[in-house]
Design a protein around this nucleic acid. Structure first.
Ligand code: FES
Ligand code: FES
Lengths: 144, 144
DNA sequence: TTATAAAAAGACATAGAGGTCTTTTTATAT
DNA sequence: ATATAAAAAGACCTCTATGTCTTTTTATAA
């Protein structure tokens, strides 16, 4: 459903948050290793996230990526929006120019339901909630 | 969610089915016009669908695309499978190599639910059922 | 104040999706 | 038989997602 870029972004932010809890500021090479993503490309993705102010970074010795605290919870939607664009959850599933409930495509009723539950989910889940699941060993960050 | 190619494919098949009910065998130029898709590319997509035996075609004067009757209902899943590949509904939403409920990613429970309702939908909806909605004027094929 | 370690930046490369153009094949009507 | 109309095929093209390589900037430690 989501592009690889967005997947890397979410996993990277979760890892950064976990490390921040240990008072660490990981760099992109370490992050890429831990989330199993291409190193340089992960750097680029993090640059974009920093520009979008979803994460902070410091250059130089001892630098790396981190969240300013207190951090407002970052929903997955914010990450998706920043990378895939604002229209991601309003497109017609049948491919029409616009989704319009008043002049629907033949898929509209069912598709809109699925799309909206996806939308609901990414608005409920946050980088922080995913990180907590991993810290409680209820879920895994990677499959190395 | 779905690629443009798949969207064209579904709309094209629906249009062909509607025309077949009127004893017509539309060609790809007519189809592309009616579903508002790029002409030549739509031809290619239909070639692939014909190879996958989701539709039949006849060359030569009076030729075009059609369904052999009696046609088994074609689920949207069959179309998606033919174009996007078999893994479309089994991927991990967090980007891990495999989705595994026994060693889940932190998104698994919620993502799998959304993914499975999408899967259920595309297995219930058929080219025929969408075409019928359009014929009953309950939905539109295009937005010209 | 110099060396070092880190992100930022920019140029480039690759693959796949999406799309166009031209030629070939084939069925039908005349 | 010949002209015509249609899909099939194949060679391209373009754009976007994804990914790599090299250089620059900047903060810190020694
Ligand atoms: S009109 Fe197609 S999904 Fe709403
Ligand atoms: S393990 Fe990630 S969705 Fe199932």
């Amino acid at each position: 459903m989501l592009g690889k870029t967005t997947e890397y972004a979410i996993r990277a932010l979760v890892y950064i948050y976990i490390q921040n809890m240990e008072r660490e500021r990981p760099g992109f090479k370490e992050i890429a290793k831990m989330i199993d993503s291409p190193e340089q490309f992960t750097g680029k993705v993090l640059q974009n996230l920093a520009r979008a102010e979803l994460v902070s970074s410091m250059k130089g010795r001892g630098g790396g990526f981190f969240f300013n605290e207190p951090t407002n919870p970052i929903t997955l939607f914010k990450v998706i929006e920043a990378i895939e664009g604002k229209e991601y959850f309003s497109k017609c599933g049948f491919g029409l120019k616009r989704c319009d409930a008043n002049n629907p495509c033949p898929l509209h009723d069912d598709y809109a339901h699925v799309r909206d539950s996806f939308f609901k989910m990414v608005n409920e889940k946050t980088i922080q909630s995913l990180a907590n699941k991993i810290n409680k060993r209820e879920a895994t960050l990677n499959r190395l």
